[in-house]
Design a protein around this nucleic acid. Structure first.
Lengths: 205, 205
DNA sequence: TAGATTGTTAATCGATTAACAATC
DNA sequence: TAGATTGTTAATCGATTAACAATC
């Protein structure tokens, strides 16, 4: 599956998919050229063609890429039609917001349940998703067959949670805690530190 | 100020700062070596030394870098002591969560106020911050002297909001809407698409 | 001194861009 | 056909790593 594509190309795949899906469906964009995509996204057009080549969808000289087919190819590439379950640990403000966010379904991902260690939250439902005790993390992940997890706990709890998620069979973690977590080589991690990103922007000015 | 540092080195600066601040303050880490930092963060040690060189803080052969001094140098580099105001547009779940999040202060950033176009929200306070009408965006940004903004509105509203922020004098935007926004060259943008990041993780498996 | 660690210069690696042939 | 666009190969660019001299 999805192999030996450069890291950075992979990261752009959802961007292409999003962009193509957002175009008006009135026939204007039956075909779209790499140049048009590049302009819409602020990328180089050769880069776009190279990236799209990884999807296996061939463009036609003179007209460009068949949009519907390209969308399907990107969806296939990103395995959007394989339903994947994710769990979220930490039901603070951010955890709550993500539970209510509808965007995951665009990639075939469903947030199946949440975990917290606040007795006042355990047993409740948020956006229709049950909040379970962190003590039941292993069992909860197993039951819904989750392979993805979002960590939205305070920094000091993140490392422990990451290890528990690993034990629970989670294969990839999106970490919002502002610490590097190291659950080991068998688990992929992407860190998103919102405050740090704002600080980076500030110091670029 | 902050000049000609490689993009990727800049992105790691907050990571170093975070890490150094998180170490126990019991004297164990009066000095810390690049090797130790590299290990703690999963980076190469030469890379760490190169990055830290941009802060101007010199390490001592045989002992490493003076931690307190290094923290100060990183803080200076990131202008943490220059107070910077930010605004947030869109008070949905994510906007709310970010308003309540205390992490920005670590980088000298304060979320001064929020904007929304829901009359039920306008005039209320969240985490002590006033929610204003998007119609007052220009005036609100001016009054608090904000140069940073967070966009947490639905995708279809993001481009318009970005342009309004530009008109209001905002210089950098952290965009959570899953669209590329293009307010023009005078405004820096970092995009964070949470669902896309989870999709990327999923397809790496 | 000997050893550990820094800081720098050169080499490597990967990603982007440029040039251009192929194609409809 | 002529022209626009794709797809590929070579060149460039930037970031990381390796090698090693300098230093305390």
């Amino acid at each position: 599956m999805t192999k030996d594509i450069p890291e950075f190309s992979l990261q752009r795949m959802p961007v292409y998919l999003n962009y193509l899906r957002s175009l008006p469906d009135d026939g204007t964009y039956g075909y779209i050229s790499s140049g048009a995509i590049a302009q819409g996204l602020g990328l180089g057009e050769v880069l776009v063609r190279k990236d799209l080549a990884y999807t296996g969808c061939a463009g036609k000289p003179k007209v460009g890429y068949p949009r519907a087919e390209l969308i399907r190819a990107l969806e296939k590439f990103l395995c959007v039609h394989d339903k994947k379950n994710a769990v979220i640990v930490g039901v603070g403000g951010l955890g709550r917001a993500l539970l209510s966010y509808g965007g995951f379904v665009n990639y075939g991902i469903e947030l199946a349940c949440a975990f917290d260690n606040d007795p006042a939250k355990i047993g409740t439902y948020i956006a229709g998703k049950p909040v379970l005790s962190v003590a039941d993390l292993r069992e909860g992940c197993r039951r819904c067959g989750a392979i993805l997890a979002i960590v939205a706990v305070p920094a000091q709890a993140a490392q422990t949670v990451a290890e528990q998620l690993k034990d629970a069979g989670i294969k990839a973690i999106l970490n919002f805690a502002p610490v590097q977590i190291a659950p080991g080589d068998s688990v992929r991690v992407i860190n998103i530190d919102v405050a740090a990103n704002l600080a980076i922007l500030a110091s670029m000015l």
